[in-house]
Amino acid sequence: MLSLDNLQNRRKVLGVLVIGLCALAPVAANLLDEPYYINLFARLMIWAIAAISLNLILGYGGMISFGHSLYLGIGAYTVGIFAYYDINNFYIQLVAALMAGFCVALVFGSICLRTRGVYFIMITMALTQMIYFLSISIEEFGSDDGLIIYVRSELGTDLISFDNPIHRYYVIFLVMIACLYFSHRLIHSRFGYVIRAAKSNETRMEVLGYPTFRYRLACFVIAGVMCTVAGVLSANVEKFVSPDIMHWTRSGELIFMVVLGGMASMMGPITGALVFWLLSEFFARITEHWHLIFGPFLILVVLLSPRGIDGLLALKRSAND
């Protein structure tokens, strides 16, 4: 029996609840005859994957990227552009997307990581804005109207198809779990310790002989590539991609999910994405002016709990103590 007085146990319980909710959402949706929630949760998990990747650099690495939605766009546009030229093989699309994400993250990372603090925030935003305006200006791929993807990626097997919402859902679910596991391993590896140490005191790490720039760049690239995967999946849920996916407000929303869930906590991004999506869905039902509620809600979360929902868990303990 887990004792809820222990923070680690509380985290475990929350983790099991959140993962369980994602795992069982389609079953529940069908039982309750609310099939709409299958795709809603699929979207939410895609954002969670993107948020997990952002948490790597933002939460653990202290690199506040305000342009992370760029990689969602790269993934989604790769699928869109390949489908536009009738190349529907998933694996070709995926490899191309990962390579594109890798190259862009490498180039942009080496530019951005020269700066610190708010300068870093602004330069990541600026670079994403440039690609955003680029995507708007390319008429061949629909400019700002976006690109319809008529055929979803083909997995090359009859057993699983992205056209089946349940299959699609569990592919996304498994990818999310894989990303979660990967980031857990990464953070607890030697690499992860260097990244985290560099966040708190970079000079010390440099004195100790660690090439922190290279470590941070590697982390930046890993996060970019992981987010590209989310973009690939997004294209397969939406069957559509438009520059809107790279708008700076999308990057902002990703940050909010991470901060809401609790930075540098393993389950934070998923919890954040879950709460963010379900609450906005819930508030929007109440009134068209739902921002009147959502805005003060965000402020309250920040004021009451400095470390998001994860921080709430810790907060409760100290209240009990």
Partner: peptide, 11 residues
């Protein structure tokens, strides 16, 4: 293959 040929479970 075009969009008419595939009918998902959702549909």
């Amino acid at each position: 293959m075009n969009m008419k040929t595939k009918i998902s479970l959702l549909v």
